[in-house]
Design a protein around this nucleic acid. Structure first.
Lengths: 155, 155
DNA sequence: GAAGGTTACTTGATGGACTCAAGTAGCCGT
DNA sequence: ACGGCTACTTGAGTCCATCAAGTAACCTTC
């Protein structure tokens, strides 16, 4: 029985490894780092305050500052003060940034290449299982942070 | 239909995100980076040549040099010349390294915390689905690199 | 309405991860 | 032994990431 469990763990590891590697390749093919692509992904649904990005990306605010600075220097995002609270800077994606991000999504073959191995029915099964795995489980107190709205991942 | 698919993609993203974050936390709880923990994991089944590590970790050989140097400085691995080919350096894990690695495994709660949400039968289902996803599929020519033998992952 | 505390972001310093280019040492075929 | 290849290292540079300290703006409270 420990054998079944360890096989599953190995499979999950390989799965995550393949996913990460594919995303990395996709980003780099477009000339972005994984972190940059991930940040762009966060912005596709609308603007975000710097601080919110730090929370969503699970990193230090000062890290977001430099990440955004590099993207801004390349014209992929803009940073403008929030009219309601002048401490806050709201980051939004530019048309060029949207193009780059779409290019990453296009280069990211994992969903089609890998999930495409499954039939529609199998995909539905997988979805059910993942929902259960991801459900806030017993043992963990509070878990939320739905991360990216369209399917990104970090480094 | 595009809705089912996009839900699945989002779930896979969240799953990978949670896995990565958990591994990162586990490594850092022990005072290692994810890359260092991953490298230790590669060594648990036996020694490896530097070059082989570079292939398995999908990175430049010079990166392995510094990674191993840092681990060696902390006494977690040793590096000794291959008697058969004096160009080759074989890296092996020390008892201290093994202890650290076990600590990472212990701190890595994902398998128990998350996969534990599934019944034995569901785990078996997931295993079958993952096997199909990971199978060398149509479209990819050659894929091997079974990565870590006991369940590691990179940054 | 000014003082004090908190919040949001930036700056500076530091360290790890990673890559590329160039270098050295050892292998191997001719 | 010579030339070419392989394995690893070194050095330079970039990005990611964190911490500590700073600045500006908000928000209370007196």
């Amino acid at each position: 029985m420990a054998d079944d469990a360890s096989t599953l763990q190995q499979q999950v590891w390989d799965f995550v490894y393949a996913y990460d590697a594919a995303y990395d390749r996709a980003a780099q093919a477009v000339g972005l780092s994984a972190a940059q692509a991930c940040l762009l992904g966060e912005l596709t649904q609308g603007t975000r305050a710097m601080g919110d990005l730090a929370v969503e990306l699970l990193c230090d605010p000062s890290n977001v500052t430099q990440l955004v600075a590099r993207l801004e220097a390349r014209g992929l995002v803009t940073r403008l003060p929030d009219p309601a609270d002048r401490r806050v800077k709201r980051v939004s994606i530019t048309p060029a940034g949207r193009r780059e991000h779409r290019a990453v999504r296009r280069a990211f073959g994992f969903p089609d290449d890998r999930l495409g191995h499954l039939t529609g029915e199998e995909q539905r099964q997988l979805s059910v299982l993942l929902a259960k795995v991801l459900a806030p489980g017993p043992g963990a107190a509070a878990e939320s942070a739905s991360t990216a709205p369209d399917g990104e991942r970090p480094a």
